[in-house]
Design a protein around this nucleic acid. Structure first.
Ligand code: MN
Ligand code: MN
Ligand code: ZN
Ligand code: ZN
Lengths: 137, 137
DNA sequence: CAAATAATTATAATTATTATAAAATTAAAA
DNA sequence: TTTTAATTTTATAATAATTATAATTATTTG
């Protein structure tokens, strides 16, 4: 249920200095429309259904390109695989240890001590536990 | 310059249901005394100097044992390797992208929205950027 | 169109971590 | 103490995410 048309995504990529190849459009569209914070492999398996010839290397190449151009952010929720988020705003991620879904939380405020002199370029707040649904069991 | 004696560490492990083998003592002592948030490999290479017969598997086994018994916390700062911290309190970690050192920050306050109904069991706040030293270049 | 450039693929390489089974050590029983 | 059982450690292989490489395909440019 994306609100972006393919044409809009195309222009957006061009505006960010990325040539809008078919695969890049597809991958960015998936990140925009399915807001599930997918891993590289989830994207690969999803696109494979439509485009059986697609290669994992393309997914990794494209995600790294998007990261460098700051179109997506990397989420370090799990040790075994990276997740990606097309929402760039500063928000927290919660992973349910039962259903494995990833939820977004809005951060109202955060106060740190001792950061004077440090140049903070990246921030990530990662949480884990059990979501409301999974607790009813 | 640890303030814990080997005897104290021994008793601490026993109190936590861990048999205080030589290697376990050494590994926990390293985590306590060198507060550098080491990776498994850093611990391995350090102990190897003293005990050349030590195996990487022992390091991983022991760290996982410590994690299960909640003696250390895992820090997910980097995608390529896990770091470990014998300080269990809730605090943030900052990694300098230049010198690669990891710094602790005290968290004065944090307010999240929309967490009602969620059971939060784990929290991690990870930062990256340039430390004060490295900025003077 | 032809040449140059860029994107994609298939495949191999890398590397942190886990699994497995044998050997060594320690604890418990006799 | 000797024997036996349980635990720990080691060496090695397996796993799996990611990156590197080189060949192929597609696109752009003159
Ligand atoms: Mn998100
Ligand atoms: Mn710390
Ligand atoms: Zn859940
Ligand atoms: Zn630094």
């Amino acid at each position: 249920m994306g609100n972006w048309t393919i044409e809009e995504i195309k222009n957006f990529l061009i505006k960010n200095g990325i040539r809008p190849s078919f695969y890049r459009l597809k991958i960015y569209q998936y990140l925009l429309n399915e807001r599930t914070h997918p891993s590289a492999d989830e994207i690969f398996l999803y696109l494979k259904k439509e485009i059986p010839t697609i290669s994992r290397a393309t997914i990794y190449n494209t995600l790294n390109l998007f990261l460098n151009k700051r179109l997506v952010q990397l989420i370090n929720l799990e040790r075994d695989e990276a997740r990606y988020d097309a929402t760039l705003s500063w928000h927290a991620h919660f992973k349910c240890l039962n259903c494995n879904k990833v939820f977004d939380f809005h951060i109202e405020s955060l106060k740190l001590k001792g950061v004077e002199g440090f140049q903070i370029l990246e921030k990530q707040l990662n949480l884990a536990g059990y979501c409301a649904q999974c607790q009813k069991k």
